[in-house]
Design a protein around this nucleic acid. Structure first.
Lengths: 342, 342
DNA sequence: AAAATCTCCGCAAACGGTTGCACAAACGGT
DNA sequence: ACCGTTTGTGCAACCGTTTGCGGAGATTTT
């Protein structure tokens, strides 16, 4: 913050009027004579006066700033979300302050506590994987700070949230596999302690059951990274009764699967179909391109910010918390077979 | 910004002392008696008083906030950079306000102009591709706002900058190809109007010349997306004298090349080597994994923020602008051959 | 010509916090 | 008992802007 800032007082002094007059001139207050307004406008132009947002915030108790707390920025999904948030915020005249927790509970607590000072008008939070307690979040809410969760919410906290429809995303993916003729569908899943791991597996099982396929424990393994997939895929394909499709909990895992399957000379999708989850950049560059589930991160970010704006505008009204589920979309590419014609 | 904020005045009233006394107690000023300090501390604790950062900023003319203007957030390189910036900023007690220009000159101008009001202590800018004029940047600098460019700088503006070493990155990549025995090396390049396009091609040509290989125009084509690569790679491989290596201006293009080469039954890297540029996520998931050039975005972000901090601390001293080049690193994976033993 | 009404502007307080200065009370020394 | 310190606190101004209120002077109304 440089010191040579032109203030309303400078304008006033130069013109031999009071700061109030300048202030009123700038907002075209009827009390001020056209002549004076004209003078003020001219000098403002000349000196390139810009209002001091900090002073405005102090007086109006409104900072037009929202805080964004995210586990990580370098992550295709999160950066899409951030982008959506920023887009809506910018259009609504809000600035976005960004904080990354690096998936650390302690850091998240630190950040949330510092937010009390920041005077943000609202907060958007996606909680870190390692956060088990949520007192820091409750405290902020108790202070009346509008808060909206996106993607990862703290269950026990009553607040607005917008989340990915993991269950239906998984359900639709698996149902699609079934409708293309797959019957032995494996699932490479994330830890069940994570919301995404749990919901996606539920969707998987639910789709199987709907179509009368008995879920088979030997086809469900914890495997959620590319490297893990390189190890585990061969094992599962060497089972007596190997799968004819694999539904992976994320794209990176799916790419590992593709790589191994090709090395093992399986044809994709003729012998084995593969579906991922995320629809990141990688999905388009694999060979074959990956069928996957788009989470619409950008859209999710926009909705989260819109909900926050509504909450901020509603101010003291305090309507009940709403949960919005962003629908997923199955993006069909080359790693799955076409639908069977009936 | 909620209204039920506890202020120093509340503490003072409750304790029957003046706000000054509370303020001094909180900074452990020697003038205040231990007894009073104790009382203040207790009440502060009880009422969960948090200083109002806006009021502090107004008085101290220091916001502890920096503005970050970036063409896009959803981009592996930029999000790494942002992450590095945020990391250093957080450690130094600065908040980061993020703005994306979406590669639009008009939006960039809007943003930069709004920054004058924001009272940021400094600005980090990567200019949009479509920015030709730089008056908006000059204006900010004239107002004395510390400004550091990262990755994409405005040449005609004298300001600190930290950039990727595109030339040497390309040079080293091509030299490596030569040292693994490649002789006909193609280059898929970005438009030469872009800094990265120009520098990387220069590095490519320079490496060829150093090793006595005549640059061949038929091996240099404009091609900088995955889809373009799908079209162009077959053409270049069907030349009478096809290349034995392709150096692509980015990873996505390189993945397109890999895909086509495999379809055309070329063996990688035995028949044709491929090198990308970026070292994004995709580089690890291709088959074979992609040899590429890491730009160290995270590191670049950290350095940019460190330079800005130095500039902010130096305040009025105004030392000459410095340019820092972040070295690139050749990350050797499976799409290139091993070095020839000598 | 007095009263009422306009027109145009400034004073002062406020937002929340900090800080130079003054000052009252208590203390120590003579 | 008197003076000089020390100790602890409050007053007021300030950061930049806004806004309720009051008021001087000009203009209109009766």
């Amino acid at each position: 913050m440089r010191s040579n800032q032109v203030t309303i007082k400078d304008i006033a002094r130069e013109l031999g009027v009071s700061p109030s007059t300048v202030s009123r001139s700038l907002k075209d207050h009827p009390d001020i004579s056209p002549a004076t307004k004209q003078q003020v406008r001219k000098l403002v132009e000349k000196l390139k006066y810009k209002p001091n947002a900090v002073a405005l915030s102090l007086r109006s108790r409104k900072s037009n700033t929202i805080a964004l707390v995210v586990p990580a920025i370098v992550h295709h999904f999160f950066s899409s979300v951030i982008s959506g948030i920023e887009e809506v915020a910018q259009a609504a005249g809000y600035n976005v302050m960004i904080f990354q927790s690096n998936e650390s509970y302690e850091r998240e607590v630190d950040i949330l506590q510092s937010l009390a000072s920041i005077q943000a008008d609202g907060v958007l939070v996606s909680v870190s994987k390692t956060s088990i307690k949520f007192g820091h979040l409750k405290e902020l809410m108790n202070e009346g700070l509008p808060l909206v969760f996106f993607d990862r919410a703290a269950e026990e906290i009553e607040a607005d949230r917008v989340v990915v429809d993991d269950f239906n995303g998984a359900f639709n993916a698996v149902e699609y596999l079934i409708r293309t003729g797959c019957r032995r569908i494996a699932h490479f899943s994330a830890p069940q302690t994570l919301g995404i791991g749990y919901q996606r597996k539920r969707g998987y099982i639910s789709a199987l059951e709907k179509h009368g396929i008995e879920p088979d424990d030997t086809l469900m393994v914890k495997c959620d990274t590319h490297d893990e997939a390189l190890e585990i895929t061969p094992k599962i394909m060497r089972l007596d009764n190997p799968p004819d499709a694999i539904f992976a909990v994320n794209d990176l895992t799916a790419t590992g699967i593709l790589k191994v399957l090709k090395q093992m000379r399986f044809r994709i999708p003729d012998d084995v179909s593969v579906i991922g989850f995320t629809d990141g950049l990688v999905a388009t560059v694999t060979d074959p391109p990956l069928t996957t589930i788009s989470q619409h991160g950008f859209e999710l970010g926009k909705r989260a910010m819109e909900m926050l704006l509504k909450r901020i505008d509603a101010l003291e009204e305090d309507f009940p918390a709403v949960t919005e589920v962003i629908p997923t979309e199955l993006v069909i590419r080359g790693s799955t077979r076409p639908l069977l014609s009936d």
